[in-house]
Design a protein around this nucleic acid. Structure first.
Lengths: 352, 352
DNA sequence: CGGTCGATTTGCAACGTAGCATGCCACGTT
DNA sequence: AACGTGGCATGCTACGTTGCAAATCGACCG
């Protein structure tokens, strides 16, 4: 480790590894001012003479100074990073959500650190308790396998916003659509178009995941409201919420007890089901109606195009960031936790 | 949470709200050892007596100590973060790539900071030069709008791996499939199945993006090899590489000069084209064959399922991380830059 | 019993930055 | 001429951590 030598004026542009990046001190030495003054220039502090500012700016440019994020973070106690933890980044819904979150965070000067848990409880725990919590100013977390009790038990001081999942103690901020109402509307739409044997794909009896459970609740409510009786064997459980699982469930349904409509708890399942309908030679929507949830882009271009429930994803991202911004503000501690309901709407396309 | 009594009174500024996270010093005071010893325990330094280690461990647990990432990063000059910069996180290909990268990085003890540029040149520049470069140990960058010349001009502070794009000077590591060969194989497959009027969707004449250009080259090569002459008006330009663009291009083709096959430079375009074929009542693959590129999951479940070129995405992620790991290692400086070719294979499904 | 060695523990310093308080200067006022 | 005053510049310090080297201790050897 050697000194950057202050006066070194050889510009090594194409060198594989230039010397260490200049610090405030290096710039200060070159500009003939104190490090503190350079800091004042960098941070646009008011009392800096115009010519000094000019000169320092020039040197800053020359030397290609960039603030050291670690030092800043250490000094100010803020990193400007927020964590986004979702089950999987490669599922369309979470991909879109991640994109929207990154975009929205950018306008607030935040950088997003994205992580996925693959729906694994252990990994979810690690995200909530692990070291990287010391790295982010706040966390947006979409739980999957972790029970609400465990969520409540977390000790950390970092502001946390839950997506989708409600934490029963009311001890955390949360943003989600009204899954029960939304599902109910969707299924009522199926009922309204004359369907009588309406199945559901996507029950997850062994997971504490509220989202699927709430959508199941809405489905049942719609059936009952129409004078039908929810039938257990029309409620298809799935391992995961991918296309393959939707396909498997659809095959099982068709083999045993063909319905005239399926409500799927997400679009991926619906697209899997749609594919199976095609394989079996069923006409959609004539022989079988299909409705999904999430309004992922794939569904808009499937053949036929998928009817679905569209949650206001931008709103979800924005509101989640709002929550964090509020918690990171001055009055953070005392504010009551919020349960924000994002909008949704039923988008009727060609599968119903 | 109880008030830690007694010895802790000498912490004055540290505890703002009684909830401040404990530092090594706090733990040390409570355990009756020096901060350095606590550090030794945390880092599994060998020379620590068994009972001391035990005692310190207990206190660490009690106080819920977590290392401060900023301080560590400042001290060691390494943050354990790597940046992943892609055009868009919500496009299936990059979503899958991001997921694989995050997963692979995890096994190496790295955390991924995901960013998207929306294909905007200015934003790409910002990513390459901006502050967050001071935050990450390395960068995996998938350029879109930035010209190779600009790439070369960057003052390199951290190791950089390019995805897809080749930087002509050979001054950077790069991982990509052999786009020319892969495209050629795909188009040869179309030729081999008797197609004679083979269009391409996805030319990007105004972008320096090599990927699309290379795939165009492969397409032309295959045609020539089959004794056909590439026709400009069968090479459809697109604004972006989304489904909508594929649909638009397909409509234009069908309106003016219907082909009997289309090779699309990515799957999203192909799915958009497929959708239009359906709208126009064309039978796929009888009337029109369609082939894509990327092997995104949607294509496996579309109706009919999409023939495509499958790049070895896991390999791309792993190799890119390999490059970074190597550059971050001791012999970093002198190593020659590598141009890694990832594998690919043609996956024939139902659209051809 | 002095000396040496290895095991264990510790103090000091520094990474780069920004908060705080103070010092310096020119200018205008009393 | 002494005294504010406001604009401007700068030391000093701490944020939490770890590399380095030195200090402490008991045990063992000659």
């Amino acid at each position: 480790m050697e000194e950057p030598a202050g006066v070194c004026d050889d510009e090594r542009v194409n060198r594989s590894r230039g010397q260490a990046r200049p610090s405030l001190k290096d710039v200060a030495a070159r500009a003939g001012v104190s490090p503190r003054t350079v800091s004042n220039v960098v941070n646009d502090f008011p009392y800096v003479a115009a010519d000094t500012r000019e000169r320092v700016r020039t040197v800053l440019d020359e030397m290609g100074y960039r603030p050291n994020a670690a030092a800043r973070s250490l000094r100010q106690g803020r990193s400007g990073l927020i964590g986004l933890v979702v089950p999987e980044l490669d599922s369309p819904y979470f991909g879109e959500l991640a994109a929207l979150t990154v975009r929205a965070a950018e306008t607030r000067g935040w950088v997003v650190l994205a992580d996925q848990t693959d729906g694994d409880a252990e990994r979810e725990r690690r995200m909530l308790d692990g070291m990287r919590l010391q790295l982010v100013d706040g966390l947006i977390f979409s739980p999957w396998a972790l029970s609400p009790a465990e969520l409540r038990g977390r000790v950390d001081a970092v502001p946390l916003v839950l997506l989708g999942e409600r934490e029963p103690g009311g001890l955390m901020d949360r943003v989600a659509v009204d899954n029960v109402s939304a599902s109910r509307e969707a299924v009522e739409h199926l009922v309204g178009s004359g369907r009588r044997r309406i199945a559901l794909i996507g029950a997850q009896p062994n997971l504490p995941n509220n989202t699927a459970a709430e959508r199941l609740t809405g489905y049942r409510a719609a059936l009952r409201a129409a004078g039908m009786t929810p039938t257990p064997h029309l409620e298809m459980p799935v391992e995961a919420l991918h296309r393959a699982d939707g396909a498997t469930a659809m095959r099982a349904l068709l083999d045993h007890d063909p319905p005239d409509a399926v409500f799927c708890v997400n679009d991926q399942l619906a697209l899997g089901a749609l594919r199976v309908a095609y394989e079996r030679g069923l006409r959609v929507p004539d022989d079988l109606a299909i409705c999904g949830f999430d309004d992922i882009e794939d569904g808009r271009y499937s053949t036929p195009a998928l009817t679905t429930v569209a949650p206001a994803k931008e709103q979800i991202a924005e509101r989640a960031l709002d929550c964090l911004a509020k918690r990171l503000g001055p009055a953070s501690v005392s504010d009551p936790y919020r349960d924000i309901v994002a909008e949704h709407r039923l988008v009727v396309r060609e599968t119903t």
